[in-house]
Design a protein around this nucleic acid. Structure first.
Lengths: 138, 138
DNA sequence: TTATGTGCAAAACATTTGCAGGAGT
DNA sequence: ACTCCTGCAAATGTTTTGCACATAA
């Protein structure tokens, strides 16, 4: 997709951005679609995909390419890490300091021009941990 | 998929594992399929998917859920980090020490039972860096 | 007015699955 | 023999795309 200076401010774009901003759950495109559809029932899923993609290229939102089958989107764009529940797939923020120097460490041992990094923790969220305990009892 | 003690040693499984072991390129399921098909022309793509999944659950190979649209597989199972080329999608190993203590740091600030982490660097590989330079000249 | 954006539906991918026949053990 | 496994093809799930109409600027 091409960035052009004449990007229009449409109702669809405003509402997608508003709804994404309301939430800290790193929704998938489909979840954003469901949220937005409550206010704009005739919006198409394609429009949601197109605009999430466009906004992530512009840098006003973040596209998370974490594990699992779907991409997720985040209105919080300052660098931070994530944790994903191996059982239910939920993604949360992890509030530990971002390691700025690690990119240089990686650049020193590789042929790549290193531009960034992301840390994804994995584990079990509270709810899923509790469910496992209950199952142990049976 | 269920792990049963009576997992059979089939020709397909042997060859998938052999071909994956020959290579350090973190191939996608389709790339493994292409490699294996040279030796077993009648193998089905479903069989490749089923067995890569099974092997990664057993722990004899690694399933990489990195960015991009496809999952990738790795015969090297000891913990290590990766870098992905933003231009061509290639994935390489990054030989920096694994941070064992970082899981505890994450556990301290979250409600999750933290089980692991992965670091994915992103950047431009040698070939793609050079291509960008050439385009600058034009 | 005119280029950009949208809705809709179809296409394109990536992956999973049902099933009848095939092969390890 | 008795399971488990495979090939095949169809189904599923996610994302992208073509096109005619709509709309922001």
């Amino acid at each position: 997709m091409q960035l052009t200076p004449q990007m229009r401010l449409t109702t669809q774009r405003q509402i997608i951005l508003e709804e994404l901003g309301k939430v800290t759950s790193h929704p998938t495109a489909n979840e954003v679609y469901d949220m937005v559809r409550k206010r704009l029932p005739r919006i198409g899923l394609g429009t949601v995909y197109r605009n999430l993609e466009l906004m992530s290229e512009t840098g006003i939102i973040l596209k998370l390419e974490v594990g699992g089958t779907q991409k997720r989107f985040d209105a919080t764009i300052d660098p931070h890490y994530h944790i994903r529940c191996l059982s239910c797939g939920k993604v949360d923020d992890i509030e530990i300091p971002v390691m700025e120097d690690i990119n240089k460490t990686a650049a020193a041992v590789s042929q790549y021009q290193v531009l960034g990094h992301h840390i994804e923790f994995s584990g079990l969220c509270n709810e899923c941990s509790n469910m496992e305990e209950e199952q142990m009892v049976n």
